[in-house]
Design a protein around this nucleic acid. Structure first.
Lengths: 249, 249
DNA sequence: CCCGGCGATGTGGTCGGACCTCACATCGGA
DNA sequence: TCCGATGTGAGGTCCGACCACATCGCCGGG
């Protein structure tokens, strides 16, 4: 046999419905902002039950392609939207927790993506984003800031830079990857010995990063953020915090 | 008010179920390979109807965390698995079709990811993967190969290199991004004027890439693949093929 | 004439029950 | 001993009903 046999995949109905709607999207017949017919109308048109249709809609909803609101009026019903971030974040978080990806893999991915983010941000980040980033950095420099609050601000800082890089895709990916390791970083920060000193060191890096981005020094910012990320992940593997997986801890 | 109000988000039951199962995964109580109780048992335990539970399971299934098989025996039932690739691919394809990402964004993402892939592959790609890649390259060099078959092999080549880089996460991301532009590339190749010449040029690049990877020249391979990708995407925007989105092009 | 209350309407959300298909497990007859 | 009919339990599908909610529009009081 020339190639391996494909399972004939005789489908479950909801899968067919999903495929049908996807094709409409690929064909450009469904665009962001469009409304789908009500479930009770669409189901018989597609020749399936409402349950099967709803399962397909649910899937589309969780991958950020659809939102559904009950009620009546212009906002009600199922609408096509573009909100990939939540879905991607959930996906990566779950798979990271399941051990699909090692910490090392995530580290490398972060390095690659954030280098690109910072380089992009150095080239064309809007001023207001940089000002907002400055506020975040200032927030992290507050004396006596808690680990949790710091982690929140740190996440928002990196995500903001990614978004301001002008590339929606790498921005989404960066956010998702950063979010997926967020609980791990939180635990690592909680376990650090001299927290104030660590915070100061991280803050210094953040300030320098922001300065480099402001003056358009893309490559330097990229190098520094790589060092920044590798340093933090180094404490992850060295520290007493084990991986999420079943091993030890 | 200190911070903006969060919508209270009183959730729909299936969302609660989803969250509940997710927490089990995050807590490490559910691992890859584990089986969930039958739907008819689990639903009353969680205090929801089977429909709500099924919607949550369906979501988990489409993000590659779960597979469900009917019947009886060791393979039957709902099992936790790790198969993020399909889900990620579908997600990116849909959002790309919806115009969440511009062609430029995808180009940059591909460049960043595949540079990393090829550098990784040059460092530690297993011999058998390289041999398989050589077969793919040879397949693409077949005289009179069709555009569609070429595109298939080309996709498999890039995905294979990504997988052999040893990084599961960037591999998955690379595959997903490459797959998301697959139909676009197909249309661009179909529209090319002198197809045999184009194929020859691309094949030469592929051969050189493979050689560089084989001899461990990571940076050189990265530079070449960047040039390779930018060249191909250049034909995309130049060619008569417009982007899927509604915007002008 | 204006305006506030209140029911009609239509939407998604949920639920319980019923039946189907499938694949394994079992047991009986050849 | 072997083989096929049958039982059983899993997910897959469908149906009908009800619920919660938001809007629309009527209607009566001011």
């Amino acid at each position: 046999m020339p190639v391996e046999w494909q399972p004939v995949q005789q489908s479950r109905t909801h899968e067919l419905v999903l495929r049908s709607i996807e094709e409409r999207v690929f064909a450009g017949e469904l665009r962001a902002g469009d409304r789908l017919p009500p479930e009770r109308e669409l189901a018989p048109v597609l020749g399936v039950s409402r349950s099967a249709l709803r399962e397909a809609l649910r899937v589309l909803e969780t991958i950020g392609v659809l939102v559904a609101q009950p009620g009546r009026g212009p906002d009600a019903g199922a609408r096509i939207v573009r909100n990939p971030d939540d879905a991607l974040g959930r996906l990566l978080r779950l798979h990271f927790a399941l051990g699909s990806y090692s910490l090392h893999d995530v580290l490398e991915a972060r390095v690659v993506l954030e280098r690109s983010s910072f380089e992009g941000a150095a080239c064309h980040a809007p001023i207001e984003d940089l000002d907002e980033a400055a506020e975040l950095v200032a927030g992290m420099a507050e004396p006596g800031i808690g680990v949790s609050a710091f982690n929140d601000l740190d996440t928002r800082f990196h995500v903001l830079i990614a978004r301001s890089s002008g590339n929606a895709l790498t921005s989404t990916l960066t956010s998702a990857v950063r979010e997926s390791v967020r609980p791990l970083i939180l635990r690592a920060l909680e376990a650090v010995e001299d927290w104030p000193a660590t915070a100061r060191a991280l803050n210094a890096e953040h300030r320098t990063l922001l300065t480099l981005v402001r003056e358009g020094s893309g490559p330097e910012a990229a190098d520094l953020v790589e060092w920044h990320i590798r340093g933090l992940h180094g404490t992850l593997v060295d520290g007493p915090v084990g991986p999420v997986g079943p091993s030890s801890s």
